[in-house]
């Protein structure tokens, strides 16, 4: 299930604007990696290159390699749609499909692709995904109600359930807790800890405590100034980044002396 990611000399562009430059990073399987850094330094942009979501924007392109267990995501002939079913994504704002019930939302990845699924298999997948997202007990009595009727935190966990229902190898999360209250945040953080058993998890966060709580390794991105590309400054074990960073910029940022 879980796969490792190796990124080699990655440059990311929006048209002519180079948003991220020269990233080299390796993410181990069954681990949680946090991306931190100031706003606009390219964390989301970089994250979206890991499942080829970057290129859905007009004019967006990528140079370099992203290897998933040794296979280049950007190699010739690679189908981006297939890549995305191996690398799932959870967005900053919960975005359940408003026309679908909770049940259909969870099964969306399967159903939208018109894969045949027997009723018992579907029920099993539904329950295991919702249990995996710590949501089963809260929604099991109203699976046929619309997903948009849940609270924000529940919706976000529904989106996580939806992402794990397609059984990806990697789960990317872009500030998954920024729209949530502390209790829902805690629920999602616990969930991330459990997901680590089976998946490679990469999470973008602005919350240092969160990065410290959930991640094994942390990557610090920074930007020299507006209009300049973002760069990976330091990548190390989370405890090292927060207690004993080797770069001055990292230390300034994690200790709040930034800018």
């Amino acid at each position: 299930m879980s796969k490792r990611i190796d990124v080699k000399d990655l440059n990311v562009y929006y048209g002519d604007f180079r948003a991220v430059e020269g990233v080299n990073i390796s993410v181990a399987p069954r681990s949680v990696t946090a991306f931190i850094g100031p706003s606009g330094c390219g964390k989301s942009t970089f994250l979206r290159t890991l499942n080829r979501m970057h290129e859905v924007l007009p004019g967006a392109r990528v140079e370099g390699q992203v290897l998933l267990d040794g296979d280049d995501l950007y190699g010739p002939g690679v189908d981006p749609v297939a890549v995305r079913s191996h690398v799932g994504m959870v967005f900053q704002r919960p975005n359940p499909f408003p026309t679908m019930s909770i049940r259909d939302n969870v099964l969306a990845g399967v159903k939208l692709n018109s894969k045949r699924l027997s009723k018992s298999d579907a029920d099993e997948l539904l329950e295991s995904s919702l249990r995996g997202a710590n949501l089963w007990n809260e929604v099991k009595d109203r699976l046929d109600k619309p997903g948009s009727g849940l609270s924000g935190g529940q919706q976000q966990r529904l989106c996580i359930a939806r992402a794990i229902a397609v059984k990806p190898d990697v789960i990317l999360m872009d500030e998954p807790c920024s729209a949530l209250d502390p209790i829902s945040t805690l629920a999602v953080e616990d969930l991330i800890n459990e997901l680590k058993e089976n998946y490679t998890v990469v999470i973008v966060t602005h919350n240092m405590q969160q990065a410290a709580r959930v991640s094994d390794k942390t990557a610090f991105f920074n930007i020299a100034g507006t209009g300049k590309p973002g760069k990976l400054i330091e990548y190390a074990d989370t405890s090292v980044i927060f207690n004993n960073p080797s770069e001055k910029a990292t230390e300034d940022y994690v200790s709040g002396r930034f800018g």
Binding site: N51, M53, R84, F91, N95, L112, R162
Partner: peptide, 11 residues
């Protein structure tokens, strides 16, 4: 966001 959510599921 809905389109992206769907793409991200490999649709």
């Amino acid at each position: 966001e809905l389109r992206e959510a769907s793409y991200a599921l490999g649709v």
